[in-house]
């Protein structure tokens, strides 16, 4: 949203550019919600029903934000903006967890949520400036045979546990494992999270930020790139490419 290019923060970000990153092109995101559905299917996210979802308890790891500005007929829709966990380098959610359930992966530089360690204080969610974390309020019912669809690579969460976007860490692990078994380095674009895989507009690009040649590194440094409320010093790893409502602008 805000594009405050505070020099210090930028400098700091350069230093710890992170391992995995994502760029989301808001100019082409059509708001079709394919990413939302793909995320839910990949990550065994429970559906919560009409009442609970209307009360802000839906478990979407990814939400597509937009709003209307102005009054009819000068009303304009702000670009669709899919917001999930920004996998902050300095994540505010982590230090506040009393039991180390929200921790940082040194290896992948990702924000981890260790479900089995979580006791449900929900402090991390309060401290997440992106409101990216969701809480399992109940054991949401998934009647038989719906549980057959569960992805065995992802833990099925029960009540009382925080959860959030993981950048599809199970796919990262699988990709790395495969590359390692084949005795090679991971290729750019070999690992794709479910949202990027589904995105019909190819708005979501995922890859390694520590590889300057990767597509996502280049896009992240593009002129249109904006990080959400980075003035808080959170070092988010998701870059949003802003919309330009101009006719025929090149670039």
């Amino acid at each position: 949203m805000a594009n405050h290019n505070i020099p210090e923060v930028k400098a700091n970000w350069e230093e710890t550019s992170g391992v995995w990153g994502m760029s989301i092109d808001m100019d082409v995101c059509s708001g079709c919600q394919a990413c939302v559905a793909a995320c839910a299917m990949e990550n065994n996210i429970a559906f919560v029903g009409e009442e609970d979802s209307g009360y802000g308890r839906s478990l979407h790891w990814l939400r597509v934000e937009h709003t209307f500005e102005g009054e009819y007929p000068e009303v304009e829709a702000t670009p669709f903006q899919p917001i999930g966990c920004q996998q902050c380098g300095h994540a505010p959610c982590e230090p506040v967890c009393p039991v180390f359930a929200s921790v940082h992966s040194k290896n992948e530089d990702l924000n981890l949520q260790v479900y089995n360690r979580c006791v449900g204080t929900r402090y991390c969610a309060n401290n997440c400036p992106y409101v990216a974390r969701v809480f399992n309020m109940r054991d949401y019912e998934r009647p038989e045979p719906l549980p057959n669809q569960f992805n065995p690579d992802v833990t099925v969460r029960r009540r009382g546990i925080m959860e959030k976007c993981t950048f599809c860490i199970q796919r990262i692990h699988q990709g790395q494992d495969k590359a390692k078994a084949d005795g090679r380095e991971l290729l750019d674009g070999e690992v794709v999270p479910a949202c990027a895989q589904a995105c019909p507009a190819d708005a979501i690009v995922f890859g390694r930020l520590d590889d300057p040649e990767s597509k996502v590194s280049k896009l992240s440094k593009a002129g249109r790139g904006v990080k959400l409320i980075e003035e808080l010093g959170t070092l988010p790893r998701v870059t949003f490419l802003e919309e330009e409502k101009t006719y025929g602008r090149t670039g």
Partner: peptide, 10 residues
């Protein structure tokens, strides 16, 4: 690529 409906066909 898929849409949300395709994803939910399961």
């Amino acid at each position: 690529k898929t849409c949300a409906r395709g994803q939910a066909s399961l």
